[in-house]
């Protein structure tokens, strides 16, 4: 039998293909169901690590600085992401508080930290300690990270508030915008490719 790395199975319909090397910008799709099989990985490992490092810094800024502040007859009110989580918790919407904290803080942070960890080692072609569980965790966390949706939510909230209040965007909103862009660039990469560009050194 051929080695497993030469073959690729479409996740959506189970059709088997032999892998072809892709050139820049190329995407291979399944002939049967049309799903994407593989994308060309256009950013190298160093570049990906740099992106994650940038994302981490921006993530810290996004969480520590106010997103927007409102002015209303001389009073000021500003909130961070955690301010929103705490407000929901105190207003008897604990389910929403937990959901918000998970999808906008814990899951994105988990993704950034795990990616940073595995990419740091992958740059030398090595699988980081705990590589397998880390990659499994990434796979399951991925759909639950919702920074992009939050970004749009900020926009809607600002527009809704602006008919009654004076709205001043804070540094947090720019940080979230940059984070959205970084995540979008990064999401065009299939992290599972890391399995093929690293080797197991534990044996």
């Amino acid at each position: 039998m051929e080695s497993g790395q030469d073959l690729i199975v479409c996740e959506h319909c189970d059709t088997v293909y032999r892998r072809e090397p892709l050139t820049r910008g190329q995407v291979s799709t399944c002939l049967e169901c049309g799903a994407v099989l593989e994308r060309h990985q256009w950013i190298g490992l160093d570049g990906q690590f740099a992106l994650i490092l940038a994302a981490f810094i921006v993530f810290v800024i996004a969480n520590c600085t106010p997103i927007v502040s409102l002015g209303f007859s001389g009073m000021q009110s500003a909130t961070t992401l955690w301010g929103a989580v705490i407000a929901m918790w105190n207003d008897s919407s604990q389910v929403v508080a937990v959901l918000t904290a998970m999808t906008l803080f814990f899951f994105p942070l988990t993704q950034i930290l795990i990616f940073g960890w595995v990419l740091w080692f992958a740059r030398d072609g090595i699988r980081a300690p705990g590589f397998a569980p880390a990659m499994i965790a990434l796979y399951y966390v991925k759909p639950w990270s919702m920074i992009e949706v939050f970004m749009l939510g900020v926009l809607v909230a600002v527009v809704k508030a602006s008919s009654y209040f004076e709205v001043v965007p804070g540094p947090g909103v720019w940080a979230f915008a940059v984070l959205t862009i970084l995540i979008t660039i990064f999401a065009s990469h299939d992290s599972r490719e890391l399995w093929n560009v690293t080797r197991d050194t534990s044996e």
Binding site: I67, V68, G83, A84, L99, L104, W144, G153, A157, K160
Partner: peptide, 17 residues
């Protein structure tokens, strides 16, 4: 997951206003 939009809007407005 884009349906979470309204949930986040409510969370933000409740914290702000």
């Amino acid at each position: 997951y884009w349906s979470m939009l309204d949930v986040f809007v409510v969370a933000l407005l409740s914290a702000l206003v």
